[in-house]
Simulated assay, not measured.
Amino acid sequence: MERIRTTLVYVLLTLVTAVALFPIGYMLLIAGGEGERFAEGGQTLFPETAGEMPGNLASNLDTVMTDGTLDFRRYLRNTLLVAILAVSGTVVSSAMVAYAFARVRWSGSKPLFMLMLATMMVPFPVIMVPLFTMFRELGLIGTFGPLWVPAWFGNAFSIFLMRQFFMTIPRELDDAARIDGCGHFGIFRHIMLPLATPALLVVALLHFMFVWNDFVGPLIFLSHRDQFTLALGLQLFMSRLGTTPWHLLMSATTLMVGPVLVLFLLTQRSFVEGISTSGTKG
Rank of each mutant, 00 (worst) to 15 (best):
M128R: 11
G217T: 00
G145W: 12
R178I: 09
H207A: 01
M128N: 12
L117W: 06
R163A: 15
T229H: 04
F215V: 02
D175M: 11
W152Q: 09
R136Y: 09
A176I: 01
L236C: 01
W148Q: 06
H247M: 14
F153L: 08
D214L: 09
I179P: 03
L241I: 03
F153R: 04
D175V: 05
R240V: 13
F153S: 04
M134N: 11
V149L: 14
W148A: 12
L115Q: 06
P123M: 10
V211G: 07
R240K: 14
N155P: 00
A204S: 02
G186N: 02
L234H: 01
L230A: 11
L241H: 05
W212P: 08
H247R: 10
F237N: 09
L200Q: 03
G145D: 02
T244N: 12
W212N: 13
L222R: 04
T244L: 11
C182H: 15
P130L: 06
D175P: 00
L205Q: 03
M128P: 03
P123V: 09
F215I: 01
L195D: 00
F124Y: 12
R189E: 04
S223D: 05
M114Y: 13
P146M: 09
F228M: 13
A204L: 02
R240Y: 10
V122L: 15
Q227E: 09
N213T: 10
R240W: 08
R136A: 15
D174C: 13
R178Y: 06
Q164G: 15
T197C: 05
W212M: 14
A196R: 05
V202W: 04
A176E: 08
L117H: 06
V122C: 15
M238C: 04
V211P: 01
L222F: 00
M238A: 13
A231W: 00
F237R: 09
N155C: 03
H207W: 07
H184M: 01
A199G: 07
V149M: 13
R136D: 14
F221H: 07
L205V: 13
P125C: 14
F215L: 10
L230G: 13
P123T: 00
F208R: 05
V203E: 02
R136W: 06
S158I: 00
P245K: 07
A118G: 12
H247Y: 15
W148N: 08
R163K: 10
G183Y: 06
F221W: 09
F135P: 07
H190Y: 10
V202T: 14
E172K: 09
A231G: 01
T243N: 14
V129Y: 08
L234S: 10
A177H: 07
F157C: 07
G183H: 03
Q164I: 00
T143M: 09
F160D: 01
F124Q: 13
P123G: 12
T119H: 02
A177P: 05
R189Y: 14
T133G: 05
L200H: 01
L195Y: 01
C182F: 13
